[in-house]
């Protein structure tokens, strides 16, 4: 081999090694940030984690207390949001995958839905404020739940459509050959075949909205006290974290860290369960 081609060879090898090292480093950086964030959360959050967090109300500055009303508020609004949003998303996804698979409407809805999926949640909050808060004149848990529902819909639509498209056409054809009507095929065959995937979609939606803060800030606002009145402002874990973390009080900051740990653990558990459920179906 001539000297020239040898040096070219070495240069290419060096470049290759360098690029590979850079890729490994990039992955390392990504994983390091994950570890750092989770590590700090555990370290700061665990030290404040005790029974009082789950049994007492949010305290005034300088006093001891817990996060009970915030946790309950989050649970109530998330459940309501999911109950309102899931059927809508499920039905829309069903139309797109079953009835109107090749129609123009489906194309448009898919496009718009994908945009709503990534649309800034704070804008959704403004929308619900305009529709449900400024017209009524006061903040309410209902408005918070509706804004979460608007965020649930696109997630459920997306997964429903994807999962129903994965159901083999042969199953449907067999049912048609038996003379089953379309609606029955969808409910008895398609839904059953795609059950794990559909549940995944709902879990992902719950994971997505339970950490949402921005849309709740001016729909459900916040509430320092225990309240289950859906027509009144309601506390939520993310909103409390936002308020407490930016406060100068040490007790509040500690509660914010503990709340952050609770939310993160919940959300990550949900998304891991969702992933495990859908793993054999959709290998990504």
């Amino acid at each position: 081999m001539s000297e020239f081609s040898m040096s070219l060879y070495n240069a290419r090898r060096r470049k290759n090694l360098f690029a590979k090292a850079a890729c490994v480093a990039a992955t390392g950086i990504g994983l390091a940030f994950l570890a750092l964030i989770l590590g700090v959360l555990l370290w700061k959050g665990l030290s404040g984690l005790n029974l009082a967090v789950f049994t007492e109300m949010t305290p005034p500055p300088g006093a001891k207390g817990g996060l009970l009303n915030a946790i309950m508020g989050s649970v109530i609004m998330t459940v309501l949001g999911v109950i309102v949003g899931t059927p809508l998303g499920l039905m829309a996804g069903t139309y797109m995958a079953e009835y109107g698979r090749y129609t123009k409407l489906t194309l448009v809805v898919r496009f718009i839905n994908d945009i709503l999926l990534s649309a800034p949640s704070i804008v959704i909050g403004l929308f619900v404020y305009e529709v449900l808060v400024s017209t009524v004149g006061h903040f309410s848990a209902w408005a918070g739940a509706v804004s979460l529902a608007v965020l649930v819909v696109p997630v459920v639509v997306r997964t429903t459509e994807d999962m129903l498209l994965l159901v083999p056409g042969g199953l449907r054809e067999a049912a048609v050959a038996l003379g089953m009507p379309r609606s029955l095929i969808i409910r008895k065959i398609s839904y059953r075949a795609a059950k794990a995937g559909l549940i995944t979609g709902v879990l992902l939606a719950v994971a997505r909205v339970s950490g949402e803060t921005a849309p709740l800030l001016f729909t459900a606002l916040n509430n320092q006290f225990w309240s289950t009145n859906l027509n009144a402002p309601m506390s939520s874990l993310p909103a409390v974290i936002f308020q407490f973390a930016l406060s100068p009080y040490k007790d509040w900051q500690q509660l914010a860290w503990t709340g952050a740990l609770i939310i993160t653990v919940t959300v990550l558990m949900l998304s891991i369960i969702a992933r495990v459920l859908s793993a054999p179906r959709a290998q990504k």
């Binding site: 950490g211 949402e212 993160t264 998304s271």
Partner: peptide, 10 residues
């Protein structure tokens, strides 16, 4: 999956 507010506080 980590909520936005967690990135904020961190």
């Amino acid at each position: 999956g980590i909520p936005s507010i967690i990135y904020g506080i961190w």
